[in-house]
């Protein structure tokens, strides 16, 4: 019997996009956060160029407020796959006086990442930055192109985007511009988890149910940590939680859950009545929080 390839449309589309990036750009980079979406990107890139190695480096913009589990996982993955990892630190931009640390109740380094990212793009002359953003995450991201052109200030001109027709991706840019590329634009949260399950992809332990010192603010469960500002009356309790989305500690809320296998996570998401970014503190700043950050060069 002849062996016919069963094609997964979303996987095939993502691989196609990765290959266009490598063909159309001189100096691409994969933006790696240690979250499930960027881990999925690494697997897709592996498939796209097999038996060759992934032909671009990974860039991690480290806020210094990461979950230690994420960093541990990142280093293991890089080692196992023989990847080239570049790390740039938000702390350096703070020390150089380029950005000022936020203070107070909702302080976070999430916004500060943009400066570090744009500096790294300039330092390494990256012309394409591949990211794991998905259109189903957030309504401004729903308007993103697969190839999203940014000017030399990293700005997104959302009202003047290039039309994308069929599979024809136009990556032509001027020197100084760069393109943000989103291979899993058309995936939903459930698509990502189903893929992780099907491919047996390893992910950091914080995605699974665990005990954690937490406190509740605005109906969200925050991690108790030296990086997270906490008022005296915000009581710390040990809760059984997991994370659905992983940014740094100051902008990612946990959810109460006993899902400790991928299978259970998939089950949990299928019946969940709250969206993934409902646990993102960074999105709650305003109705247009994401669009504003993107205009400034956030990914």
């Amino acid at each position: 019997m002849s062996k016919i390839l069963k094609t997964n449309a979303l996987e095939s589309e993502a691989i196609y996009i990765f290959r266009e990036v490598v063909a159309q750009f001189e100096n691409p980079v994969l933006l790696f956060s240690g979250g499930k979406d960027s881990i999925t990107l690494v697997r897709l890139a592996q498939k796209a160029f097999y038996p060759g190695k992934i032909p671009f480096p990974l860039l991690h913009v480290d806020t210094g407020h990461n979950f230690p589990e994420t960093i541990e996982f990142r280093d293991k993955l890089v080692e196992e796959l023989g990847l080239n990892l570049i790390v740039r630190h938000v702390q350096d931009a703070i020390d150089e006086g380029k950005v000022t640390e936020e203070t107070g109740k909702y302080s976070s380094r999430n916004m500060l990442q943009t400066t570090t990212l744009l500096d790294a793009i300039e330092e390494f002359k990256f012309d394409a930055c591949i990211g794991g953003a998905r259109r189903d995450e957030e309504k401004a991201r729903a308007k993103e192109r697969i190839f999203s052109v940014r000017d030399d200030f990293g700005q997104w001109d959302e009202k003047n985007q290039r039309p994308e027709l069929f599979d024809l991706l136009n990556g032509k840019i001027e020197i100084g511009q760069n393109v943000r590329v989103f291979p899993i634009s058309n995936w939903t949260e459930l698509d990502v988890w189903s893929y992780i399950e099907q491919e047996h992809i390893e992910i950091p332990s914080i995605y699974f149910s665990h005990k954690r010192e937490t406190f509740v603010r605005d109906g969200l469960i925050w991690s108790a940590s030296k990086y997270v500002y906490r008022e005296e009356d915000e009581e710390v309790l040990e809760r059984i939680v997991r994370f659905r989305t992983v940014g740094d500690m100051t902008c990612t809320a946990a959810v109460e859950s006993d899902a400790d296998t991928i299978e259970q996570i998939v089950k949990e998401i299928k019946v969940s009545t709250i969206s993934e970014r409902g646990a993102r503190i960074d999105d709650k700043r305003s109705e247009a929080a994401m669009e504003k950050r993107k205009q400034q060069g956030y990914f």
Binding site: A142, K143, K159
Partner: peptide, 29 residues
């Protein structure tokens, strides 16, 4: 209001750009 993702679209009450909307059933995405 769920699909007009840009400030300009919500301000003017018009859709400027293609919006992508996702839903799935047991059978299909």
């Amino acid at each position: 209001l769920a699909t007009d993702g840009l400030v300009a679209e919500r301000e003017q009450g018009i859709t400027i750009d293609v919006a992508h909307i996702y839903f799935s059933t047991k059978k299909k995405s």
